[in-house]
Simulated assay, not measured.
Amino acid sequence: MSMDIDWARAELASFLKLTELYRQPDPPGGAVFTSKLSNRGGAREIAASAQIVEQILDRVLPRWRTEVPDDRNKRVNRWCQHIEAVHRADAVLLRDAEVRERLGDNAPQLSAGALHPWVWDGARPLWRSGHFREAVTAAAKKVNAETQNRVGRRDASETALFQSVFSKEPPRPGQPRLRLMGEDNSDTFKSVHRGAMAFAEGCYAGIRNPNSHEDCLPELPEHEALEQLAAFSVLARWVASATLSAG
């Protein structure tokens, strides 16, 4: 499901209005000389709005917490980082399609938030802090754990697990299978499950295992890490949508 841009921009605008600074008027019959400014919204109202706004920012600017400065004018307005991030996100929402068209890059974009929940839920905390290689590893572990949950096994993991669950052999006691199509023993059935088994092995042998040695490797560029997450998202959707066949 795509983002409702009009709704998102309205939420951002509401937050900016609540966090706008103003000087409170002098009390009747007197004058108070102060430079102190206040937010137009109350603390609880702003906090409630920030809860929604942060989710929008996470979708539009996944790295806003680390890329947007958070040490400027904090004494004047505690929401300064949020406010700058909101202005940036609003510009993206308003003009992203135009910018990509003008710059000659109007190709479809992959959103991390649109990946399978197992993958993005596993990767999100580390991704936000710029630890992309570790984020991919966390996503791989999450997919493995959810697959174990799906088939009720703890005695096999990663490559061995997927070799078992996508095996063309009939299920056995303690070794259920995941079927991506009807079990008709056709060439297509064999090809689909052989491919799923090989794909899973490639994900864990070629992506997860090297990434587990992140201390010996440079940090992954963000776009490469996103491509790797997408691979695990494909695998996760196969596992989640497959029919469980127990022995």
Rank of each mutant, 00 (worst) to 15 (best):
A240F: 09
F189W: 04
N211G: 11
H82V: 03
E169D: 01
L115C: 05
K141C: 09
F166S: 00
D70F: 10
M181K: 07
S186T: 07
P210G: 07
T19A: 07
R150D: 01
V60S: 08
L244D: 03
H193Q: 05
S14P: 10
E201D: 15
A114D: 10
D90W: 07
G206M: 08
A196Q: 01
V119E: 03
H116C: 03
P221I: 01
M1S: 15
I46S: 06
E45A: 14
E214L: 13
D6S: 10
D4R: 07
W120I: 05
R194S: 13
L220V: 12
W64S: 02
L12P: 05
E169Y: 00
L244F: 05
A198V: 07
A240V: 08
E222R: 10
L61G: 01
I83F: 02
Q24S: 15
H82G: 10
A236K: 01
L18R: 01
T147F: 04
E11S: 14
E169R: 04
N106Y: 08
N209Y: 11
S164H: 01
R128P: 02
I5T: 15
W118F: 07
W79I: 01
D155G: 06
A8G: 04
T66Q: 06
P173W: 14
K142F: 01
M3G: 13
L178Y: 03
S191K: 15
W79Q: 00
D6P: 03
E11M: 10
R153W: 00
R128M: 09
M1N: 15
E101R: 14
T66R: 04
F166Q: 03
F132W: 01
S212K: 05
E11P: 08
L12V: 06
P25W: 13
R9N: 13
K17D: 15
E146K: 09
S245I: 09
A89H: 09
P125W: 02
I52Q: 09
R124K: 12
R78T: 11
E146A: 08
E67H: 01
H87Q: 13
S157H: 10
A43H: 13
P218N: 12
M1K: 15
P210E: 08
R153G: 00
A231N: 06
L178F: 07
S38D: 11
M3S: 11
R124A: 14
Q228M: 12
K17Q: 15
E222D: 11
F15D: 06
E67N: 00
S2E: 15
A196H: 00
L61M: 05
K141D: 13
L57V: 06
E101K: 11
R75S: 14
A123T: 03
S35K: 15
E84W: 05
L161M: 05
V99N: 10
W238H: 06
A91F: 09
D155A: 08
F189I: 00
R72Y: 04
P108C: 07
E45N: 07
